[in-house]
Design a binder for these strands. Structure first.
Lengths: 235, 235
DNA sequence: CGGAACATTGACCCATGTCAAGTGTCGTGG
DNA sequence: CCACGACACTTGACATGGGTCAATGTTCCG
C-alpha cells in the first residue's frame, strides 16, 4: 500500500528520449520567486520543464482560499492537460529556470514518435497517483499525520536523488505547506513545534529540517499515536 | 474558473473509435453490489469500462480510514495506470456490468493506432483535473460546501445526459459520500437535513434527491453564506 | 414478521481555525 | 556596519465546525 505522500507530480521524465532533444534545445525562461509561469485561463500554449528552482501549482476559490495541488521540482513537467486553457496557476516559489516547449512542438513530436503519446500517458498516470495520495492525506489524515507525511516525502525524494534523507531545505513558506495540506499557517507552525518538542525533528532555521527519528515519524504518519514507544519496543 | 466538483473520472470515452470496437467485443463481466472489481495490489491485468451500474474507487489507510477518489458510471474507464499492480480498490456500489479489456489487448491497440496513446493521455488528463477539483473541495471547503458541490455535480451530469437536472437517485450510501468528501456519515446526514430545512432540496427517499433552488445551492457551493437572500436580490 | 443495514438525531467534546500579539530574519539604504 | 521595514514565523487565548458516541428511526429483504 502506498501510504506516503508524493510531493511532486512525479514526472521526472526519464523515458522521453526523442522528446528530450526537443526540450534540450527549447527556449530557456527565468522567473523570479513569486512570479507566475501561467495563470488559470491562460491559453495553454506551452508545456514547461523545470530545470532549477521550484514551482507551486494551485487552484483558488472566488474568496481567495487556495489549494496547492503540487510542487514541481527540477525534471518535472508542468502545463500538460487536455484543455486549451490552463485550469490552474503555476507560480515560482524561488528563482526558477524553465524550458519552454510550444504545444505545436509537442504535437509535432507526438506525430513523429508514435510512442510519445503513450509515454505522456504514463507521465500523467503518475501525476494522477500522486494527486490521489494527496486526496487520501487531506481527506482522512490529522494535521500531524499530514505534516509528517509531507516531511517524509521530502526525505524520500532526497534519498532517490542520492542526498541526505535526514536533512533538507524547504523551498516553500508555511502558508504554502498549509495550502497544500489543507491546514492553516498556525497549525503547520504548531505541528513543527510539537515534532521538535517530541525530539523527532530539528529546525536549525525555519526552512531547514533535520529528521531525528525517521522510524517514529513513519509510525506517526500512518496514524500511530504513540510512535515513540512503539519504536522503542520494535527497535 | 472550475469551481464545481466532478463526480467521475470524466472518461466518458467518446473519441476512442478503433479502440471502441475492441471494447465492444470484449468479455462482459457482472458484479453484484459490494463486490470488488479489483483490489490494491492485484496485478493490473485488465482495464474495464462500466456499461451499467456504478463503481467506487478508493484507497484505505492501515487503520481502515477510507478515501473514495472517484465514482465510475456507465461509459467510464477504470483500471488505467502506469503501475503493474493496481494502486487502489474498485468496488461496485450497485449491480454492475463491465467490459474487460486485457492489458495485452490495450498494448496491441496502442501499437496499431498511433494516436491511441495520446487519446488515453487526454482521458487521464481529464481524470487528473477531476482529482484536483476534489482536492480543492476536500482541502478548502466547509462541510456544507462539499455536500452541495457534490449534489450539483450530479445535477450537471444529469443535464449532460439529457435527464432532469433537478432530480436524481444517489447510488451510494452516506458512508460513501462521507468517504468521498472527507466527512463522517453523521455530518453528511445533518447537512442533508439542513438543506432540506432551508428548503433548498427535498429527499423523497434517502437516496432520492430533488433540488429545489439550484441558484441558491450554487451560491452556497462557492462559499456564499446567505445564498438565499442573495438569490432573492439577484433573481 | 424479524433482523440487518442504513440513516437520522442528539449531546458532548476536541482538533483545528481565528484573532491577536510578539519575535525572528533578511534585504535595503543611510 | 547599522537601522529600519517588510515579511515570515511562532505563540497564546479563545471559538467553533465537525467528529465521536449513543440512541432511535426507517427501509428493505428474506
Amino acid at each position: 500500500m502506498q501510504t506516503h505522500l508524493a510531493l511532486q507530480p512525479a514526472v521526472t521524465a526519464r523515458p522521453l528520449t526523442g522528446f528530450e532533444q526537443t526540450l534540450a534545445s527549447a527556449a530557456l525562461k527565468r522567473v523570479e520567486a513569486k512570479e507566475f509561469v501561467f495563470v488559470e485561463g491562460d491559453a495553454a500554449s506551452h508545456v514547461y520543464r523545470v530545470e532549477t528552482g521550484a514551482v507551486a501549482l494551485f487552484k483558488v476559490l472566488a474568496d481567495g482560499r487556495r489549494q496547492i495541488v503540487g510542487f514541481a521540482y527540477p525534471g518535472d513537467l508542468i502545463g500538460l492537460g487536455a484543455e486549451v486553457e490552463h485550469v490552474m496557476n503555476a507560480q515560482a516559489i524561488k528563482p526558477t529556470r524553465l524550458r519552454c516547449l510550444p504545444m505545436s512542438g509537442l504535437h509535432r513530436s507526438v506525430a513523429q514518435d508514435p510512442s510519445l503519446g503513450f509515454k505522456l500517458y504514463q507521465v500523467l498516470a503518475r501525476e494522477l497517483a500522486s494527486a490521489r495520495d494527496l486526496m487520501l492525506t487531506t481527506g482522512q489524515r490529522s494535521a500531524t499525520e499530514r505534516v509528517v507525511s509531507f516531511l517524509l516525502a521530502f526525505s524520500r525524494r532526497n534519498e532517490r536523488n542520492g542526498q541526505d534523507p535526514a536533512a533538507f531545505e524547504l523551498p516553500m513558506t508555511r502558508a504554502d505547506i498549509g495550502d497544500f495540506l489543507g491546514l492553516t499557517i498556525e497549525t503547520v507552525s504548531r505541528t513543527f513545534t510539537k515534532l521538535k518538542t517530541m525530539a523527532l525533528i530539528e529546525l536549525p532555521h525555519s526552512s531547514q529540517v533535520k529528521l531525528i527519528d525517521i522510524d517514529a515519524l513513519e509510525n506517526l504518519a500512518i496514524g500511530n499515536k504513540d510512535a515513540m514507544s512503539i519504536t522503542a519496543i520494535g527497535g
